[in-house]
Design a binder for these strands. Structure first.
Lengths: 229, 229
DNA sequence: TTACAAAATTAGGCTCGGCTAAGTTTCTAC
DNA sequence: GTAGAAACTTAGCCGAGCCTAATTTTGTAA
């Protein structure tokens, strides 16, 4: 009721800042200037400047030398972008023949240009999905998002049977590599062996057995599964 | 082969200027500063400034106090935008349930954000159409466009049988009004009566007879038709 | 032809969102 | 506790793209 009052349209830059800050502070931490700068590929002074402006617009709160946290309004914007991004990704994969490793860039630009109405139509066409092709949860039209806690594959004990739920990267090369093992969200995986010191991890999916590195295993967020692989 | 060399990404503003200049100079005229300003809803000095920059970028040629004409490169950009805009409109109407009077705004923003690849996929999904929902020709992937000369309905003689080919407006209200008479591209229309001094025009489409004003009749671009209404 | 109006440009200023260089503050290690 | 490193902010600059006000050029009409 009171959220739609001040509607100066936000710039692409502002939307990108808020998205990154949301991601960095999701775990309850504050987001640091240098982290924001790194993720946006900007210099720290640029971030300092923008943070000041966003703080004046009441989109975030800034404690100098400490970090920033989004306000409710800022979080709302970030969640709107998240919803747009993920629905666009799902739509491109579902209706326009895109591969899951190929949608990120496209969505990254489109999310700033689509209207709320178009997002609604895409979501309807998809049957209002709760997750995008990478398993990331999609905020609903009221921006409610259900972030479940999953366990990275690299922390699963040998013998355990798990289901891949999310693949936590948007890098095309990694996504392609992961897809080449069939490790899409939904896949059942049994952990066979795990070497110490970030060592290789042996898994079984269906008939096949694979050895993957620690770095990749970190990206595969899993839940304990019932049933057989 | 040699067109893809200098690829500084163009800004949204630049793309909009080139689109408008293309439209204004399509008839072989030069585009005037004030016409450009009016169509972009900017002031004349703003246009003067941008024209200088575009001229330095070799996207157009400017004769001070006379007007501007696009270079081949500038025309290429404009045609690319035209293709994007019209394919997006066709896709929104064809696949996402948009009404033809409702797609312009959406396309106006999306055209700056879509990749060439996405446009190709949309075009493929549509079967590479030659015209958009308003009957406007869509440049093909090589940016070839076939602009046929049509006659506005207001210049048709009584008794003549014509076919509506293009509806030359993007204003939603006018489009809805025109659609309410069923005057979509493809419709056969017989001209019954035409009053002088920009007076009303009586037409018959199928069983129905309508009287429309001169202003609307100007927007209905027609070709002489064979067959019966 | 000349005077005035219309059109276009130049001058100068503003915001946004980047940058580098130069301080400040905070953290860490001894 | 203090020195140095790391993180952050401030100062000051820049270009894009808009603006208003002032000036110049062009077109027109007496």
């Amino acid at each position: 009721m009171n959220a739609a009052l001040h509607q100066e349209p936000l710039t692409r830059s502002v939307e990108d800042y808020l998205k990154v800050i949301y991601r960095l502070s999701r775990n309850g931490q504050t987001a640091s200037t240098s982290d924001i700068a790194q993720h946006l590929e900007l210099t720290a002074p640029s971030v300092s400047g923008m943070v000041k402006r966003l703080s004046e617009q009441k989109l975030l709160e800034h404690v100098p030398y400490k970090g920033v946290v989004l306000t409710d309004e800022g979080r709302r914007v970030a969640l709107r972008m998240l919803r747009r991004h993920r629905i666009i990704e799902a739509y491109l994969v579902g209706f326009l023949g895109y591969a899951w490793d190929d949608v990120h860039q496209e969505a990254e630009r489109l999310e700033h240009a689509v209207s709320e109405g178009l997002i609604g139509r895409m979501a309807d066409a998809l049957g209002n999905p709760s997750h995008d092709p990478h398993g990331d949860p999609i905020p609903d039209a009221d921006l409610f998002i259900s972030e479940l806690e999953y366990t990275p594959l690299c922390e699963i004990q040998p013998g355990e049977l798990v289901q891949v739920r999310r693949v936590d990267t948007s890098e095309a090369e990694r996504l392609r590599y992961i897809a080449s093992f069939g490790l899409l969200p939904g896949t059942l995986v049994q952990l066979i062996d795990r070497q110490p010191f970030q060592g290789p991890i042996t898994i079984r999916t269906g008939e096949h057995q694979h050895v993957i590195g620690h770095e990749i295993a970190m990206l595969l967020l899993c839940s304990r599964a019932e049933g057989r692989p």
